[in-house]
């Protein structure tokens, strides 16, 4: 299965997960714009994406150096709560940015699927 659904899938689905989590947080910040004592939050990666998903570089010679930062483990997120009040312009900008990145990630996943589909169809 790894040949068909390789690491690209893992990376992209991890990205989608992060984007949908972030979307939820931004929406909650916007909904609570008028709530007294509400502190907005944001989410970021605790570890680098590429490092957590075990991408391996092929070593065909003992002298080759492999992927230096390969560590196994799930991507972990960090939620930070700000001490300031909700800034609507920042939140709207974050919303738009996150939205575009989400759509881009979905597009890339769809392309991947379409690629596999083409391979399956055209080799008949």
């Amino acid at each position: 299965m790894d040949i068909l659904f390789n690491k690209t899938m893992d990376l992209l689905s991890g990205m989608l997960d992060y984007r949908s989590k972030r979307h939820k947080i931004i929406v909650s910040n916007i909904a609570n714009i008028d709530t007294e004592d509400f502190k907005p939050s944001d989410i970021s990666f605790k570890t680098e994406f590429g490092k957590t998903s075990s991408i391996q570089m092929t070593t065909t010679d003992p002298g080759h150096i492999g992927w230096m930062g390969s560590k196994n483990g799930p991507v972990s997120f960090e939620v930070k709560t700000s001490e300031e009040k909700v800034k609507i312009d920042t939140e709207m900008a974050n919303l738009a940015e996150n939205h575009l990145m989400y759509n881009m990630t979905v597009d890339m996943l769809a392309r991947k699927f379409r690629g596999i589909n083409t391979v399956l169809k055209e080799t008949k």
Binding site: S28, A31, N32, T35, S41, I43, V79
Partner: peptide
């Protein structure tokens, strides 16, 4: 918000 799937962002997500 009652959301059983996301434990990481449970504290950050609030409805009004």
């Amino acid at each position: 918000v009652a959301d059983n799937f996301d434990s990481t962002i449970k504290e950050a997500v609030r409805s009004v």
